[in-house]
Amino acid sequence: MNKSRYTKIFAATVTGLLLAACATTAPTSMSPAPVAAYRDIIDLAGRLSVNYQKDGKPETLSGKFNWSQKGERIDVALASPLGQTLAKISVTADAATLTQADQAPRVAKDIDSLTAQALGWSLPVSGLRDWLQGYATAPGGKRFTASPASNTVTTADGWRLTFVSWQDETAAQPAPKRIDAERAATATSEPMALRIVIDAQG
């Protein structure tokens, strides 16, 4: 076989192999849609319904809330359905303060136990920092991002969350509209259920 013919056969073989490789290579998958970044500054207003146990008896409370978050500081105002302020809560990295009408402010390190003592039920402020933006911490510390297709998670501290509805389901990362949260009884806490509806956000 002369050199010229050998070169042609080799070139044809290489070309065939390259074409076969191109035909069998899977197409490159598209990059996932970007996830909206967690915001350190938010202002929300909405409605809150709480079902809890007090002295072994079921209790229900409903009303309005305003939530203002700036970095580590959180300010929450709880009001009756008619708008009468029931309590104001301020949480910083160092302490939590709860103020009720005609009462001296109460200060503690732990806002959950502070609200349990003052209100009869614990407001999970540390969890709400994430929940109100559609995030949660799952068991093992895994970060959970809620969406219409994946809207339920049990958190690392035992809350069963369901993100029921959304402000705009067509958004790349929809913001929650309604969140249901349930926690079973434990050795140190009573069963409790929250329904949160966000009416306005900024």
Rank of each mutant, 00 (worst) to 15 (best):
167 Q>K: 15
152 T>D: 12
139 P>M: 04
138 A>E: 15
149 A>Y: 00
160 R>M: 12
159 W>A: 11
163 F>I: 03
139 P>N: 11
153 V>H: 01
145 T>L: 05
149 A>H: 11
150 S>W: 08
144 F>A: 02
153 V>K: 00
137 T>P: 05
167 Q>G: 08
141 G>E: 10
141 G>D: 12
144 F>R: 00
161 L>R: 05
164 V>H: 07
164 V>I: 14
160 R>V: 10
166 W>D: 01
139 P>Y: 01
135 Y>H: 15
147 S>A: 08
161 L>F: 06
143 R>K: 09
147 S>P: 11
168 D>G: 04
152 T>N: 11
147 S>I: 07
151 N>W: 06
152 T>A: 15
142 K>G: 07
143 R>A: 02
164 V>A: 15
150 S>R: 12
144 F>K: 03
164 V>T: 15
161 L>K: 09
161 L>E: 09
134 G>P: 06
145 T>I: 02
147 S>F: 07
132 L>I: 10
150 S>C: 07
166 W>M: 02
144 F>C: 05
133 Q>I: 10
149 A>M: 10
160 R>F: 11
136 A>K: 03
165 S>P: 06
149 A>I: 04
156 A>F: 13
156 A>V: 15
148 P>A: 04
139 P>Q: 01
147 S>Q: 09
161 L>I: 08
152 T>W: 03
141 G>N: 06
168 D>S: 06
157 D>L: 08
152 T>P: 00
151 N>R: 14
152 T>K: 12
138 A>M: 14
156 A>E: 15
158 G>Q: 10
145 T>N: 06
159 W>M: 08
156 A>H: 14
148 P>G: 04
134 G>A: 00
133 Q>L: 11
143 R>G: 02
160 R>L: 12
135 Y>I: 07
144 F>Y: 15
157 D>M: 07
158 G>A: 12
154 T>D: 02
136 A>L: 06
159 W>K: 05
146 A>L: 03
139 P>C: 05
154 T>Y: 05
140 G>C: 09
134 G>L: 01
154 T>M: 09
153 V>S: 04
154 T>K: 12
159 W>T: 04
137 T>D: 13
144 F>N: 02
133 Q>R: 14
148 P>C: 02
140 G>F: 12
154 T>S: 15
133 Q>P: 12
143 R>Y: 00
148 P>T: 01
160 R>H: 13
143 R>M: 08
138 A>T: 09
138 A>R: 10
162 T>L: 13
134 G>N: 06
135 Y>R: 14
139 P>A: 09
143 R>Q: 08
167 Q>W: 10
